[in-house]
């Protein structure tokens, strides 16, 4: 099967060619449609930058970046994104927030009004599947942090994107809520099988959810290792206490420590990745 996302020798530099910040250095990674990929690495290593490059939101400096057999030149139109901040619109209620992509995406926007009923039913079903059925009409302020992230996942999935890009979506949540949402995300993914790239600093999260966990070095980021945890899905949450799982987490942990020191000093505190 041909690669759906194919990244070859991609570098990305912010700012001028001389003196700018090299965020990605010779990154290569490719995976097939329907895969769940996680990217982990020390903070500031360029993980988020990689997501933006894949989404076409930031141009690469060199190398080849293809998604679905096409070179990425501008923003892709088939992407769902979710971030650490829920970025819901406070002037819309939860349901209206989930419907937003359908008002924007090209294939839906012209018929949005006519199909509003069906869209709303789909959005409600999606909200119900993440346990937010009773909160559809509630304003965003009334949702807890975990609920907001659930709603954000629904918004990222409502238009059935073929590529889902998640940038530390659970980073700001408490440990229990986070684990709960791993299970939710796993279920949502198994239903439609979109291709997912998850950027996270939580190794257990990465390993629990993903087919392959890719370790990135300190900036400028490049992939230095890959680890897998083979277990059938859906995986129960308890799997994270299995010896096999814990061993791989330790290995990942070690690789990240190496990655941090490999480039010399701890990562310099410079301009944040945007």
């Amino acid at each position: 099967m041909a690669a759906f996302v194919d990244i070859k020798n991609v570098s990305l530099r912010y700012g001028p060619a001389a003196g700018g910040v090299l965020a990605l250095d010779d990154v290569s990674l490719s995976f097939e449609r329907g895969k769940f990929i996680a990217v982990v690495g020390p903070s500031g290593c360029g993980k988020s930058t990689l997501l933006k490059a894949i989404a076409g939101l930031w141009p690469t400096t060199s190398g080849s970046l293809r998604v679905g057999d096409e070179e990425v030149r501008g923003p892709l139109k088939i992407v769902g994104m979710a971030f650490q901040n829920a970025t819901l619109l406070p002037w819309r209620n939860t349901l209206e927030n989930v419907l937003l992509p359908l008002q924007v995406v090209e294939t839906h926007r012209d018929h949005f009004r006519r199909n509003r009923r069906q869209h709303e039913e789909r959005a409600l079903a999606l909200l119900e599947s993440v346990g937010l059925a009773d909160f559809a009409e509630k304003s965003v302020w009334e949702l807890s942090g975990g609920m907001q992230q659930r709603a954000q996942l629904c918004r990222a999935l409502i238009h059935e994107p073929s590529l889902l890009l998640l940038d530390e979506p659970f980073g700001a949540l408490d440990a229990f809520t986070r684990e709960e949402l791993w299970v939710v995300l796993q279920r949502l993914w198994l239903e439609k099988k979109p291709t997912v790239v998850l950027v996270t600093h939580d190794l257990r999260e990465a390993l629990f959810l993903a087919d392959g966990v890719h370790v990135m070095s300190a900036r400028p980021g490049t992939f230095v290792a890959e680890r897998r945890f083979a277990a059938p899905r859906p995986r129960p949450l308890e799997v994270i206490y299995d010896h096999g799982f814990v061993d791989v987490v330790h290995e990942l942990r070690a690789r990240i420590d190496e990655a941090r020191s490999a480039r010399g000093a701890p990562p310099r505190a410079t301009v944040g990745a945007r």
């Binding site: 933006k52 989404a55 076409g56 939101l57 923003p75 892709l76 139109k77 992407v79 769902g80 994104m81 971030f83 901040n85 970025t87 619109l89 937003l100 992509p101 924007v104 995406v105 090209e106 918004r155 238009h159 890009l165 945007r274």
Partner: peptide
Amino acid sequence: EPELKDVLRALG
């Protein structure tokens, strides 16, 4: 917020 713009831009 730039993230909010990104969400929309990634939808085309």
